[in-house]
Design a protein around this nucleic acid. Structure first.
Lengths: 201, 201
DNA sequence: CATTGACACTTCGTGCCCAGAGTGTCAAAA
DNA sequence: TTTTGACACTCTGGGCACGAAGTGTCAATG
């Protein structure tokens, strides 16, 4: 890691909590500089603007979260164990921290204004990862998608939609995890392969 | 139907499309009066204020929609056929008309400001109706909730959350119906009773 | 008796100004 | 070379005035 990277990392470590606490509009470059223990002017040596800084923060958060999500999906275990872990990771890393902020709405909206590409790309990637996991499991006969007449992509889309809906209705309180797990149990039961059908391979 | 009822019905028939078209803030009592073909002053014979009028409109829309939803759930057929029909009705009557408006967000927010009780009560009622339908089906052995380890209420909650999430992600375009149906197929498959277990009754 | 035109009151949007706060830059300091 | 204090510029929010538009009411009308 270069010295520059260390510096930006340090700044983002300081900046993200401030953004979460006060929202984008109300946090000033002075706040961030103070939190990072440097002068306000120094911030501009690493970032061209407040917006750049925010984008960089969003990008890093998404990059880290998606790396963890991928790791969760790569681990051993049944598809749905891995998918459940992946969802939990995604929620823990990206959804809950934002949702817990008092300015959640404003943060979400600025993020969509300044870093929509990053967010949408991460979401699309998550969709792909889920689709692939489901496809592989289907190919190996671990699950039977024919039972519900769905393509892996369709099912992945439903999973993301359910995640989003559960989050919307339950907020980020503890209940979120419970409902998510119930939903995954549902999936598991829905696409369990019929005992009579053997592995296609 | 009394003459008064006819009048308010006529006014609401004229008013709701106007609200949907222009949002709450931008529609004036003059707009509504014009649409209803009466004088602005006459509106105040039936409603005390613009807010009252809106509340009445929201209440009527919810009342009608929920009546249709109940009817759909009372019809013949498998639980999930009826639930699917009920969801489709709910979406067609309440979700799509609002979502299609250019001022959907503003309308939704004013509705929550002026008629939150009505909306929340309808939602709660929908949850109850779904729970009851599921419970009855479970009692009759048509479905097996034990397979996913869920109470009827929990499952109903998931259904509503999924509805909401699908709507949020897909918008109100045609895709909404497809995803909803896929989700219901998922449910169906998940709680299909195992062939070995007979009816408890 | 139902309806409405007209009236009074309120709210809302606009423009303007100003002061304070915040951003981005640069030459000087460490 | 890296960091920062200080400067200039911009932006925002609040206060105020004013005209337009909208709401709610009531006496007059058909």
């Amino acid at each position: 890691m270069t010295a520059t990277d260390q510096k930006t990392t340090h700044i983002l470590d300081a900046a993200l909590p401030v953004f979460v606490r006060f929202g984008f509009r109300k946090t000033t470059m002075a706040d961030i500089a103070r939190a990072a223990g440097i002068s306000r002017a120094s911030l501009y040596l690493s970032f061209n603007s407040k917006e750049d800084l925010f984008r960089a923060g969003s990008a890093r958060a998404h990059r880290q979260a998606m790396a963890e999500v991928e790791a969760a999906l790569r681990r051993q275990g049944s598809v749905f164990d891995r998918i459940e872990a992946a969802i939990a990771t995604f929620q823990r890393e990206l959804i809950v921290p934002l949702g817990a902020s008092a300015d959640a709405r404003e943060l979400f909206e600025t993020n969509m204004a300044l870093a929509a590409d990053i967010t949408l790309e991460a979401r699309a990637r998550f969709l792909d990862l889920l689709s692939l996991a489901l496809r592989d499991a289907a190919d190996e006969g671990e699950i039977d998608l024919g039972a519900v007449g769905a393509q892996p992509t369709d099912l992945a889309g439903i999973i993301l939609a359910a995640m989003s809906g559960i989050k919307e209705i339950r907020g980020v309180e503890p209940g979120l995890g419970d409902d998510t797990r119930l939903f995954v149990r549902l999936l598991r039961a829905a696409v369990a392969p019929s005992p009579t059908a053997g592995k296609p391979a």
